[in-house]
Amino acid sequence: MVYLHLLLATALAMLLAQASPLYWMLAFAALYPLFRLGGLVNGACRLYAMRIEAGTTFICWFTYQVFSASMNVAKMVLSPHRQPESAVVRVPLQTRDKRLVTLIGCLLTLTPGTLALDYWSRTGEMFVHILDTRSIESATGSIAEIERRLMRWIQPLGGGR
């Protein structure tokens, strides 16, 4: 389904304008309602449309998170008399898929105040270093949110879990 979408977007962009990335992205976005409509009759189409929505939401949310992470570090660095109060906490993960755990660890490190330190595949737990336990309301909550949003993208129907 994703190849079909990519192919159609390329064809549309080349037909109407030229194959530059801006026009290509416009064509990609313009084809999305087509898949949304196709989802009314075809299950695979509906799944794909849901994936696009979840993926777009995730990318926007994550970009915001990366910015706020840097702002967080900047605030910490620039406030002169504030020493961070760090901790290493243990976070149980829902998924046991090693590729997903790697991805979650990578994304975790880029979100504010958390750094993936170690993962024990035996117990399915990730150890996370928290920069400042006072400014982050609940580390476990924020990690669970990453996992939830990522799973909505990868398995929009819940994936039998």
Partner: peptide, 26 residues
Amino acid sequence: LGALGVCRLPDAYSRMHSASKAGALG
């Protein structure tokens, strides 16, 4: 700011926060 953080924060792990986040965004 990331480089300043590497200087200023107290231990190795907090410094990695600063180097990875601010450095990558920069």
